[in-house]
Amino acid sequence: MDVHTKWMQEAMKMAEEALEAGEVPVGCVFIRDDHIIAKARNRTNQLRNATRHAELEAIDTILSDKELTPQMTTYPLNSTTLYVTVEPCIMCASALRQMGIKEVYYGCGNERFGGCGSVLGVNQGLPHPAHPPYKATGGYCREEAIMILRRFYVTENTNAPNPRSKANRVLKTEIAPVFTTEG
């Protein structure tokens, strides 16, 4: 197993934890010096806050840990790599750039919110006057990442504004090939 798949499997474990907690199943791990320094999952429902995505949860953990962040620098994540099961959304992609993330690997793309190319290329396409761009590469454990989302979405997301009954929806197992690659 290559190293990216290894770390992505760790991120998948966090996504499984999210699913068990009734959250949109997205998980992530942050790697520095070949070690996991933080892992997190979506907590939007638990915290009643649609912005508490896995990546932001983990960043808070890293910054509040004096051993991981002994002193504040302009780009505290410039030697840290992120593995996340779903392409970071536009919000998280911007947060990661503001934090100077080194690199991002993700599982499946996100056509509705994706900030690493699917909807907007916040990681490198979009210019920023100060923050350096970062590379984001998708496709690691992509099918697993899609299947766990499907397992969540065939149940009703009762926290959505207008929950749709999915009683008559069936779990689809066929996965379309990737048409677009990284952003």
Partner: peptide, 13 residues
């Protein structure tokens, strides 16, 4: 608001 905050506002509807 910056891109992050604008998207946070969008996520919050």
């Amino acid at each position: 608001p910056c891109i992050m905050c604008s998207m946070a506002l969008l996520h919050s509807r």
